[in-house]
Simulated assay, not measured.
Amino acid sequence: MSFKKYTSYIYTGKMLAVFMIICISILSACSSGKQSNMPASSQEAKAAATQGEASGSLPKTREITDMAGRKVIIPSEVNKVYSSSAIGTVTMYTLAPEKLAGWNFALVPGEKKYIDKKYHDIPALGAWSGKKGAANVEEIIRLKPDFILSMGNVDDTQVSAANAIQDQTGIPVVMLDGPLTGMDKAYELLGEYIGEQERAKELGSYCKQAIAETKAMIDKIPEDKMRRVYYAEGPKGLQTDPSGSFHTEVLDFVRGINVADILAQKGTGMSNVSMEQVLSWNPDIILVSVDKEGDLSQGGFYSEVFNDPSWAQIKAVKDKKIYEVPAYPFNWFDRPPSVSRVLGVKWLAGLIYPEYVPLDIEKEVKEFYSLFYNKSLSDSEVSELLQRARAK
């Protein structure tokens, strides 16, 4: 080969090398210029997962799509979960209590009675939602849960909140919708995320069947037999939530007519109403919310209403059709609007429409508490739960 040809080959090779370097540089710049919705920690986790798959070993993380359509990187093996609200905390406790990183608030004695002692003293970490929302961010970060569960309404506001929590803590946030009629799907997905598929299927199947069976009965109730109901909240019973509110799903589902002709209060609900409004609505039935912070031994509004002359002319008071919602360990109707509402649907439907929904409520309560809370109830414990919650 001549020297001229040799130098020509070298020159061509150098030019190709320079061209390849330029192309790689351009591609790298384009890639780095793209913005990602994932926090840096999630991007690193995704890279680690990809490397694990490439090497043939089990990846340490995986990408899921939550119920808000968000792509989230979580550990392949989940051992601890913190929920940003009590809705998710109750769901986690029923599904896998050993994986619950903490309660939102310290348990009160009435709750402890129905909860396994080994979980009484797990930390109270606060919440990002509710009227007392104040999460202990430093402690949550220190405990290092595998992900934070955001369960409840899935809307733009809650998605923004979830993204903000994820950015603030550096911990992935997984969103689940939690409607009364969709708990089977919520359990299915959460069970998949935390590796508890069999237990999730069991709980989800109960929810789906209970909702379907109750609906089949209440759908047969004639319009003229539907009962008018007032949901009394607050220490004086003069706060409430209207039909269509997240807080009154149970009443809407069982086809009770919510008499509260008011606009829904955003956020935590509990719209203020006047005594004159309640008198004008004149409900057939009053459901009384329980404030666990109060001294229940003093009876609260439930006891006072029978002796208050301002309520005396209301039909529900005259007929003694005032019922206190069972609230332990978790409320059957609202606050938090958790899976306990599935039992609440059976209770309320049978309470206000006994001729159309013939249920053995004692048997239903025992079955639910055994399955969801792993608590075998005695007859006396069932009677205590229902003491103010059934027809006299």
Rank of each mutant, 00 (worst) to 15 (best):
N374T: 13
Q51E: 14
E324Y: 05
M20Q: 06
I352D: 04
I73S: 03
E192G: 15
A17E: 13
I165D: 10
G56V: 02
M1G: 15
V317P: 11
K14D: 09
L251W: 06
D184I: 03
P283C: 07
K321M: 12
G33Y: 10
T248M: 09
E324W: 02
S55P: 08
V345N: 00
G130I: 06
I73A: 01
Y231T: 06
R335G: 00
S41N: 13
S85H: 10
I257F: 09
T157W: 08
L343A: 07
E233A: 06
L251V: 09
Q168C: 02
I165K: 05
L16S: 14
E293I: 02
S2P: 03
I148E: 00
A164D: 15
K80F: 04
A49E: 15
S243N: 11
G300E: 10
G33S: 14
S36I: 05
V229T: 03
R335Q: 04
S55K: 12
P242C: 05
I141M: 08
T65E: 12
P354V: 11
K375T: 02
S380K: 14
S150N: 14
K14E: 11
I21H: 07
E324I: 04
L203R: 00
I10T: 09
E111T: 11
S28W: 14
S289P: 02
V345C: 05
Q166L: 10
G195W: 01
E188N: 12
G300M: 01
S76F: 06
S83D: 03
L149D: 01
G56Y: 02
Y369F: 15
T248L: 05
A124F: 11
V357I: 07
D360A: 02
E139A: 12
